[in-house]
Every structure is written in structure tokens, then in C-alpha cells.
């Protein structure tokens, strides 16, 4: 569904992504692991057109979206849960959801999706008129996920959804992601501490210094163990 092919991205003359190829098959949870500064967020920024790759291409649903305007890319069916949640702090929960429905023109559908969000997270229903900035991190994350789902995206990009959340809340969030995937949403999950993410993923990539250094394309325990081992090896290697 979403594919990066030999992508090179640079900020000015500093190369960040070097020959990155990632494939997110339809219906899968694909996770991209890597430590701080590995280039995970740049990968998202490249997919979304915030930075244009120097070479390589981004294919979404068979269409080349490389270097298109961000809003054009998003309107094609990509839902984004940005790093650090980025809910609109001075807007109510309901207004945040309505902004999320930007790519959806059907009023009835929007109302339906708002109800769906409130069913998925009853906590949001309680707080529908509260300003998003006054909510807890976990609640904001729920809102960020619901907001991304408002326009019925074909794929959901989650950039470090566990960042800064209590372990119990993280469990909830991950359960929700698994549930959404079961209902048919394709997921690209980007995580720093990714063992948990890897558990529920069908595919995993490990990124370091802008390169994919390991991947598991099979949904088997063995393949995942190997990726975990690679992750630990490079992590401890970096620490030295």
C-alpha cells in the first residue's frame, strides 16, 4: 500500500536518509524501529512531503506521491498521529476531530466518524467541550488517534505514540492500534522502544543513522527474535 523505494533525503547538504526502502503491505502493521536520531521522523516527513527526497520515490496505492504538497498527499488517504501528539491545544475535543475531518467532505460521514471516535474512546465523549490542551497526555493521544481516523484513512502513520505516556496508558493505546488494524486499517508504527510494537507487528524494519540495517518481513517469532537481537546489538554498540 505504501512503499519507499531507495529514498535519499538530505537537510541542506547533510544526508539523513540513505537508500531507505520500506514496504507497508495492505492490512499489515509495519513497524519502524530505531534510536533517537536514526531518521525515523525524517522518514515520516519524506512520506508527507515536508521534505523532498534527493532521489528515490514514495509510492502510495500505486501512485507516485514523491514531493507532492502535504495536503495533497494527506487527502489521498493518509492519517497522521504526529510525534508528541500535536493536538490543537486551544480547541475543544470536538473541534479537533472536525479539523481532522478536513479530507472528508461528506457531512453525514463526519458526524458518524465523530460518534465512532466517542465509542472507541468514551473518555473523549466526556470531554467533548473541553480544550484539548488541558487534557492529560494519554487523553491527548486518544484524541490524536481519533483525529487521524476522522477522514477514514487507508493508512495510519503513528510517530512514537508511546512517547511520554504511563505504561498502562501505552498498553491501552497499543491495544487500540491492534483493534484498528483488525478492523482493516493499515498501520505504519514508528517506535523508539519498539519491542512491544514488534510483538503485534507483521513486519519490522530497524533503522540506524539513516539506513535500514535489518528487517523482518515474515510474521514469525524467529524473524522477530533476530530483529530484536539486531536492535539490542546496535543499541549497545551505540552506547559504547
Amino acid at each position: 500500500m505504501l512503499e519507499l523505494i531507495n529514498v535519499f533525503t538530505a537537510y541542506g547538504s547533510v544526508p539523513v536518509l540513505k537508500n531507505v526502502s520500506i514496504e507497508v503491505p495492505e492490512g499489515s502493521i509495519t513497524c519502524l524501529l530505531g534510536s533517537n536520531g536514526a531518521g525515523k521522523s525524517t522518514t515520516i516527513n519524506t512520506i508527507l512531503g515536508f521534505v523532498k527526497p534527493k532521489s528515490g520515490s514514495v509510492i502510495f496505492c500505486g501512485e507516485d506521491i514523491t514531493g507532492k504538497a502535504t495536503e495533497t498527499i494527506v487527502h489521498k488517504g493518509i492519517g497522521v498521529v504526529p510525534e508528541g501528539r500535536r493536538v490543537f491545544p486551544k480547541m475543544t475535543v470536538e473541534e479537533n476531530l472536525l479539523v481532522g475531518a478536513c479530507a472528508c467532505k461528506d457531512k453525514g460521514k463526519i458526524a458518524q466518524n465523530i460518534e465512532r471516535a466517542y465509542t472507541l474512546f468514551p473518555r473523549l465523549a466526556e470531554r467533548r467541550t473541553q480544550n484539548a490542551g488541558t487534557m492529560s497526555g494519554g487523553e491527548q493521544q486518544m484524541l490524536a488517534i481519533s483525529r487521524a481516523l476522522m477522514s477514514d484513512p487507508k493508512i495510519l502513520l503513528l510517530d512514537e505514540p508511546s512517547l511520554g505516556l504511563a505504561p498502562l496508558v501505552v498498553n491501552d493505546i497499543f491495544d487500540t492500534i491492534a483493534k484498528l488494524n483488525k478492523d482493516g486499517t493499515t498501520v505504519l508504527l514508528i517506535e523508539q522502544n519498539g519491542f512491544k510494537a514488534l510483538e503485534m507487528a507483521h513486519r519490522g524494519y530497524l533503522m540506524q543513522k539513516g539506513e535500514i540495517i535489518a528487517c523482518c518481513t515474515e510474521n514469525t517469532g524467529e524473524a522477530k527474535e533476530q530483529l530484536k537481537a539486531a536492535y539490542l546489538r546496535h543499541h549497545s554498540g551505540e552506547a559504547k
Partner: peptide, 24 residues
């Protein structure tokens, strides 16, 4: 209005607004 909401969203967080598909 919907467009006013987009204006406020852009004022509060331009990048997040773009990620929602708002034509900034």
C-alpha cells in the same frame, strides 16, 4: 465556520494543520 476552524488550527500548530490535510 469550517474554514475559520482551519485558520485557528493553522495559528495553533501549522505543521499539525498540514498533517490534517489543511491547505495552509
Amino acid at each position: 465556520t469550517t474554514f475559520g476552524r482551519y485558520i485557528r488550527a493553522t495559528a495553533q500548530d501549522r505543521e499539525a494543520a498540514m498533517m490534517m490535510g489543511i491547505n495552509v
